[in-house]
Each structure stands twice: as C-alpha cells, then as structure tokens.
Design a protein around this nucleic acid. Structure first.
Length: 412
DNA sequence: TCTGGGGTCCTAGGACCC
DNA sequence: TCTGGGGTCCTAGGACCC
C-alpha cells in the first residue's frame, strides 16, 4: 500500500450529552443568570418572584434549609465545587450566593423531545439514555465514511458538527459529542472537551487519550469498584489495562473482572438499541423529617396510599399492568430494605397494589424511624397480552410470609 | 452538612419441576 | 439408602447510572 491512512473502524458510534442540561434550560428562561452560579434542585426550592420594576427576585442557596440534593449546577457553580448529587446544605456552604431554582421536569422533557427529534432527522438510529443523552449509530448515515481531504474521519466529523448545529437551532442549547468505534469509548469521549465539545477517536487514540484517565471515567465503574481498584494501586484506565487478569479475577467476580479488562482495552460490542420496554415503574418519597411507624401512622398511611395511587396512574397512563408489587423502605441511618410479592395475575389498579404492598409491609420490622417509602410494580405486561400470568402453580400458596410482631404492624 | 427519584442489571439461595 | 443435574421462578440486596 502506498498510502498509510488508517482504516475506518467497523462502526461509528456517537454519544451526545447535553451540557448541564437542566441548568441550561433554566438559563433560556432566565437569561439574566447567564454566567452566574445556578443550582437546580431541592424539593422546596422557590420559583423566582417578579418584582414591581420588572426584574425577578431569585432564591439564594444560603436561604435553603432541609433535605435535598443538587440535581444540576451551571459551570459557574461547578467552579465553586458544587456538583450533581451533592447535599444542598453542603452546597450552600460552598456557594451561599448561588441561585437555587426548582426543577421543572415538564420543561426539560420538552427540550429533550426537541433535541432528540433534531438528531433523528439526521441520524435515525438512536438509543435513549435518559432525558439528556443518547447514543447514535452513524455507521450507515450517508457521508459518515467519506474522507475529507487527507482526514479519513472528516466525513463523520462534519456529520457530528451538523448534529450539534441542528441541536442548537432546535433548542438554543449546546451539547458535547464523542464519536468512536463503540458506546463505551464514545461515552468517555463526549466528556473530554465539555462543554460544547466534539471529540472523534479511533483505537489508535486509546493509549494517548483514554489510558491516562482515572478508572472512574468508565461507565460501569462506580464508587465501590473505583475504591477497590484504588486499593490495588490501579488508578488509571491504562493501569487497569495492564493489570493481570488473574489479579482482577481474584478481587472481582469472574464476569466483572473480564468486563473490566475488556473495557480498559476499549472493547465493547453492544449495539445501539433503538427500542426497549420498561421493566418496572415506581414512585418513592423522602420525608422532610423521619417518621415513626406508630407515632406518625396516619401520615405514613396517607403517603403509602398516595404512592400506590401514583404508581397505578402511571401504569394506566402508559398502558401497563404488573405482577410483582414491591415496597422500599429507608430507615434513619440510610439502611434500605425491600420486599416484594408476585401475584398470580397482573394488576393495574391502586387498590390491588395497595393490598399487595400492605402484605409486603407486614414482613418488615418497623421499630426504626423511616426516611423514605417507595412502591414499585414489576413484571410488566400490556393488558391485552397473553402469557402475562404465572405458569405452573396456581394462586393462594404464597400470599403469606413470616409475621411481623403484632405491635409493629403498620399503618394498614 | 448527611445522602433525591427514577430506573437497569447482576448475584445468590431456595423452591419446585422434570 | 443415598444422592443426579438442569431449568425456571421468586425474593432480597447491592452496584451503578442519569
């Protein structure tokens, strides 16, 4: 071969991530906040109040008291150390003057639909990964594999730029895109030049661009695995790639250790999945103050029933029914417990859900105070479907379970 | 200064069936 | 009398992600 242009990879996968999405949507509404530290979150956060002179009065983080976490922060707030999932009270210490805005999910869903439609017009093979990010398979999009000048990746680069421009036209918002041979590398890459980034990598870039990064940048290595790797003196993805497979197998399961090794070598053959069905639907709530099963029984009972009604209404609106009813309790001190019960036939209505959830509740010791209560419905099917019922044994055998002490029986 | 709400997937033991 | 192996379902917990 005279020319030594690197071959294009089999696949061209993009990951698109909206920049500070919720906060950026709020800035569209309140442009006067541009450049300022702004935090979205808190359940009792106050919406801005209009003043007589036409300006708006915003709520300061310093004035917040109570439970809640940061959902998103602007880049100005991040510069002060305020990040997603941080407790609001802690955030208030770091950035007391930051503006706190309540989350407006209807608005975010609206912009989510807008940006996804804009992308879909250009590249139809899209995998939804939540409200603010998607994977896009660009492999078969016309022009993606065309070189531009001496750049074999010029075509896909231009395509990614076109997608970014289109998202901006549709929403007024910036996004960051990573394009690589697979989802794993694209997810990492979209983060490399945020905000408003565009990063195109091939396998050749693995040692230079990926291996120096901390292992936590791999989607699927969380706090626990990250800490364990740290303790093994494995800090970067390159160090993970070089780690003996036997060492990994020793400290992680057989499956996870193999995955760790492959991920560190940039290997990932998962397809872009354009359609998926939900597995479960749930509602949960954290109380303003911890509640006691006996002393706060009326309030708990009201909340419990309301959660069942919300789940039922979600099911009905989305057209699902479910056979497994589950509850989730979080106690003071953050210990979490779940119980579930699989019914012989799927249900959809609040009363049936409430009944089954009540059975689950009887199996929990409620002497500790509660901070959270949740209700979940799983094993979903669609009401018209066949084979949504249990095979084998018929009803009745498993409706009961170990009784809780009578004095701790709940708010049923 | 304690840590939201919505999810998915994996593991593991026991029941039960063939 | 002693002891199969595979497969599926149910339940509980935990890690992880957005």
């Amino acid at each position: 071969m005279a020319e030594s242009t690197p071959a294009l990879p089999d696949r061209l996968i993009a990951h698109l991530d909206m920049d500070a999405f919720y906060a950026s949507v709020e800035l569209l509404r309140y442009p006067e906040l541009k450049g300022m530290p702004v935090v979205v979150g808190g359940r009792r956060a106050h919406a801005p109040q209009p003043r007589p002179d036409g300006t708006r009065e915003f709520f300061k983080l310093a004035d917040y008291a109570g439970r809640g976490v940061v959902t998103t922060s602007t880049y100005a707030a991040r510069a002060l150390g305020v990040f997603s999932a941080m407790g609001l009270m802690k955030a208030a210490l770091l950035a007391p003057q930051a503006i706190l805005l309540p989350a407006d999910f209807d608005a975010y869903r609206h912009y989510s639909r807008l940006f996804k439609a804009a992308v879909r017009d250009i590249a139809p093979v899209i995998e939804d990964r939540g409200i603010d990010e998607i994977y896009i398979d660009l492999t078969d999009v016309p022009g993606a594999r065309d070189p531009v000048g001496h750049d074999p990746l010029g075509g896909v680069r231009a395509l990614a730029r076109e997608i970014k421009n289109s998202v901006m036209r549709a929403t007024g918002l910036t996004c960051s895109i990573g394009v690589t041979p697979n989802k794993l590398l694209s997810k990492i890459s979209s983060d490399l030049e945020k905000p408003d980034g565009l990063t195109v990598l091939t396998f050749d870039d693995l040692p230079g661009r990926i291996w120096p990064l901390p292992v936590r940048r791999i989607n699927g290595i969380g706090p626990k695995a990250g800490a364990k790797l740290d303790s093994l003196d494995i800090h970067t993805i390159g160090e993970l790639a070089a780690a003996p497979p036997a060492l990994l197998a020793e400290h992680f399961g057989p499956g996870y250790s193999v995955w760790l090794h492959e991920a560190a070598h940039g290997l990932d053959d998962r397809p872009v999945v354009t359609h998926s069905e939900p597995v479960s639907i749930s509602r949960e709530t954290t109380f303003e103050r911890d509640l006691h099963a006996k002393r706060d029984r009326p309030e708990l009972s009201r909340i419990f029933t309301a959660l069942c009604e919300q789940v039922a209404s979600d099911l009905q609106r989305k057209g699902y029914q479910g056979r497994t009813i589950g509850i989730k309790l979080r106690f003071e001190g953050f210990r979490t417990v779940t119980r579930d019960l699989t019914l012989p036939l799927p249900v959809q209505d609040a009363a049936a859900i409430r009944r089954a959830a009540g059975e689950c509740l009887k199996r929990v010791d409620l002497s500790q105070r509660l901070r959270l209560l949740g209700v979940r419905v799983g094993k979903l099917s669609r009401p018209g479907d066949v084979e949504s019922t249990r095979r084998g044994k018929t009803a009745s055998s498993n409706a009961t379970a170990g009784p809780a002490p009578e004095n701790l029986r709940l708010f049923n």
